[in-house]
Design a protein around this nucleic acid. Structure first.
Lengths: 147, 147
DNA sequence: TCGAAACTGAGAATCATTATCAAGATAACA
DNA sequence: TGTTATCTTGATAATGATTCTCAGTTTCGA
């Protein structure tokens, strides 16, 4: 996939600006996340990549990538933090959150709905003294696997 | 406030169905939460109620109330779980999430916007095999205190 | 008033995450 | 091409939130 390479180049550039390297471990994390269909926690990634990268390094990779703006953290069930590629890499989307098993699936909204949300967020910015930088609609319920 | 009493009666009834009592500690938790303007974590509540209830009991109260459907958990920054009164008690609302300090403020949407969201959620239910039970719009950014 | 069931508090145990630190890779450059 | 400054890594210890355990206490109904 050329898309993968493009993303890799963009990330490499971004990390360069941040003064850090795009190492094997970090590439592996990005790879696993771009293969995933939703946010993943450190331990989920650890399994996905078959213990290739030790947990402690994995956590460090995640926080480096997060600080560089390559990833976005997503706080989920049971005090777990799951990460996904940032919107500028993966596109804007929303979440289906399973209240039973905690997994999160990405979904996209219609352009119409998305436009309305954007407008709403602007309104909020004015109404409350809150500097909005983004938004996510979370739909809660039971996923297919949790019947 | 009569509202408080009404809520208390409703909660008492609900807990009765669940076969648990509405004890002093649990009342204190509900009181602190209904005074708050957004979700609160166990340790925040512990401070709010001036160590009146020991942390271990507080956690237990939270999980009992959660299981009985009186509270709703909200996963926030740094693996913290914050709770708030469930929607059937506190009304439906959305969140302003500060990415810096992690505090969450409740907001309400216009009826128009809310109707659109509801409609959207129904669409999602059909399109994906996902049994939606609720939704929240999270607006991310910096709160007034974090300039 | 007695006993079963529910509750409480203190402390130990768990789990995710972060910090530490010595050893290993890399890049720039003399 | 060796040298050095810097960035990384991996193992391990430490932290912080949350859950578990268990003995003692309270509460409700018979």
């Amino acid at each position: 996939m050329t898309a993968g390479n493009t993303i890799d180049r963009e990330i490499e550039a971004r990390l360069g600006e941040a003064g850090v390297r795009y190492t094997r471990a970090r590439r592996a994390v990005v790879g696993a996340l771009s293969r995933a269909d939703g946010p993943r926690s450190a331990s989920e990634l650890h399994q996905d990549m078959e213990q290739d990268v030790p947990l402690s390094s994995l956590y460090r990779s995640l926080s480096v990538l997060d600080e560089a703006g390559v990833l976005e953290p997503h706080n989920s069930l049971k005090g777990l933090t799951r990460y996904e590629l940032a919107e500028w890499l993966a596109g804007h989307h929303h979440h289906l959150v399973c209240l039973i098993c905690g997994t999160v699936e990405d979904i996209e909204l219609s352009a119409d709905m998305e436009a309305r949300l954007e407008h709403l967020v602007e309104t909020v910015t004015d109404e409350f003294s809150f500097a909005a930088s983004g938004h996510t609609l979370e739909v809660h319920g039971r996923c297919a696997r949790c019947v």
